[in-house]
């Protein structure tokens, strides 16, 4: 069963989280343990939210391109994700709890749908 772990990063403007609890080493260790466990399907961390661009197409077929601007990171945002393949939700929750992102922000666990 595949689950996506969405790593929610707290706003950088939040003074309580300016000093991140997790180090780069924590992330390297976690990443290695996911790979070593043989459960990794896919994983990426995303570039700064300031680099994001949003596209919408309206009823007339016209494109609207927006960006959140330089002060985008004032709320929790998606900082990266893992897709893992584990037997059940308890296993997925265990991996989410071990993720450094769960200490700095939160990790949302979403099952990958097997229905079309």
């Amino acid at each position: 069963m595949k689950y996506m772990l969405l790593i929610q990063t707290p706003p950088t403007s939040d003074p309580t989280t300016i000093e991140s609890q997790c180090t780069v080493e924590d992330w390297i260790t976690y990443d290695k343990s996911v790979r070593d466990a043989g459960i990794l399907v896919d994983s990426h961390s995303l570039a700064d939210l300031t680099t994001a661009t949003t596209v919408r197409v309206d009823a007339a077929g016209e494109r609207h391109i927006t960006t959140d601007g330089p002060f985008a990171e004032t709320r929790e945002y998606l900082g990266g994700y893992y897709v893992i393949d584990v037997p059940d939700l308890d296993a997925a929750l265990d991996w989410a709890a071990r993720c450094p992102g769960a200490r700095d922000g939160s990790v949302v666990v979403r099952p990958v749908s097997d229905e079309y």
């Binding site: 037997p87 059940d88 939700l89 308890d90 099952p111 749908s113 229905e115």
Partner: peptide, 10 residues
């Protein structure tokens, strides 16, 4: 069913 919450004793 969909999130596969297991039937198990912790």
């Amino acid at each position: 069913r969909q999130a596969r919450i297991p039937f198990r004793v912790p």
